[in-house]
Every structure is written in structure tokens, then in C-alpha cells.
Design a protein around this nucleic acid. Structure first.
Lengths: 101, 101
DNA sequence: TATTATACTTTGAAATTCAAAGTCAATATA
DNA sequence: TATATTGACTTTGAATTTCAAAGTATAATA
């Protein structure tokens, strides 16, 4: 049990960050607006949680110009994807040992 | 996506509480010592997180005497089990949509 | 040239975390 | 028989985290 719990990554415990990572596993890149509407959260919440993931080097944040407007593009790093998989596998084990009991 | 994320229960985001609930889904009752060693956490951490679950009525905390020593016994309530299942099903959907991609 | 809109970021009050310190009864030791 | 010490927790509070309101910067519009 403790071995599985130890695989739980504190950074991914937060549901916004869980959502960001999940979205970035399926989509190679997503912009701010899209991610915000996908997760249905406030600007501040997305921005600050994305910063947490960036600080851990789990995602990359790039700013581009679409015409004259800026656009912020998010993508997961390889280490972010790997760390997230470890986290999900731990959750999967917990689920497997818990449901249908 | 937001519909799934909305099913994530803030109380169960914390890994100690996730571990407590998971253990109490599989075992009808567990005592303090057993749970502490199962999760490998400090006394204070177990005690305060169990209190959070009790306040939500997700678990019951009973004190018994084993000889002349007190023993604290934890068990999940029906509503606790139900809430935990909802949480795990949401995680399961995220995992299913995320892994092997 | 205001004013409003777009696209975020920063700030900080409120909530949460978790180990150290505290409580309290039982038992061992001097 | 005082008085440590142990066992089984609980409480406290400093440190960290959360997240929406306020702020910033540029562009479009009236």
C-alpha cells in the first residue's frame, strides 16, 4: 500500500493540474483559451497552476502571435509525460484494488 | 472533460485520505496502528486527515478498549464508500483517456 | 482619445498540510 | 510510592497552497 501511495505525485493531486496534464497527454499542444474552456476554470486558476507545472518542467509554455494578439500555447515535456504516467499507474493500482470490493 | 473533473472530490485529492479510503473499502475496519503502518505516515498526519474524513461523514471513528489500552477503529460509511466510488470512477475515466496515447 | 475588449499574470486572504509538541492513562523503574 | 517512560492518540501553528479578484499590457472600437 505505502509503495503505491509513494508513487502519488503531489503536483498532480490538484485536479486542475490533473486536468491540464491529461489534456496535454491527448493533445500535443493546447492554447490558453481552449484549455480554460476545456477545464471550465478561471483565468487565474489556469495561469497559476500552469506555472506550477512549468516550474517542475512538466510542461512548456510558449507565447506566439496570432495576428496581433498573443496566444499562450501549452505542451507537456517528456519528463512531464513520464511523471504523469507513473502517477496514473499508481492511481490505477489503487482503483483496481478498491473497486468491485 | 470538465464533467469528469467536476466528479473529482477535493476531500480525496490528498493522498493520505485517498489511502485511508482505499484501505477502508477493502477492510471493513482498521485500527490506528495498522492504518499508520499501512500508509507509513506520522501519527499527526493520520489523526488530522481521519478527522477531515469524519467531519465529512465519510468514515466513523470509534474508540474501544483492548485490555486497558484504548484503540481507535476506523470504518467507512455508506456515503463515504459511495462518494469514493464516484471519485475513483472519475479517475478511471481520466486514466482511460490518457494512457496508451 | 476615451473606453471597452482580449489575453493573460500577480496578489494575497483564506484554506490546507503535517510534524512537533501536547495530553492522558497505564506501566515500568528507582 | 514517587516518578519516569511508554503507548495511543490529538492539537497546534508555521509553512505551504489555493484560486478569484485585481492588475497589466496591448488592440480594437466608439
Amino acid at each position: 500500500m505505502k509503495e503505491i501511495i509513494a508513487q502519488i505525485n503531489k503536483i498532480f493531486e490538484n485536479k486542475v493540474r490533473l486536468g491540464i496534464m491529461s489534456a496535454l497527454m491527448v493533445n500535443e499542444r493546447i492554447d490558453f483559451k481552449e484549455l480554460k474552456s476545456l477545464l471550465d476554470i478561471t483565468d487565474g486558476n489556469l495561469s497559476s497552476n500552469a506555472s506550477v507545472l512549468e516550474k517542475e518542467k512538466y510542461i512548456k509554455i510558449k507565447k506566439k502571435f496570432i495576428g496581433k494578439k498573443t496566444s499562450t500555447i501549452y505542451s507537456a515535456t517528456t519528463s512531464g509525460k513520464d511523471a504523469f504516467k507513473v502517477h496514473l499507474l499508481a492511481l490505477e493500482m489503487i482503483i483496481r484494488n478498491t473497486l468491485n470490493k
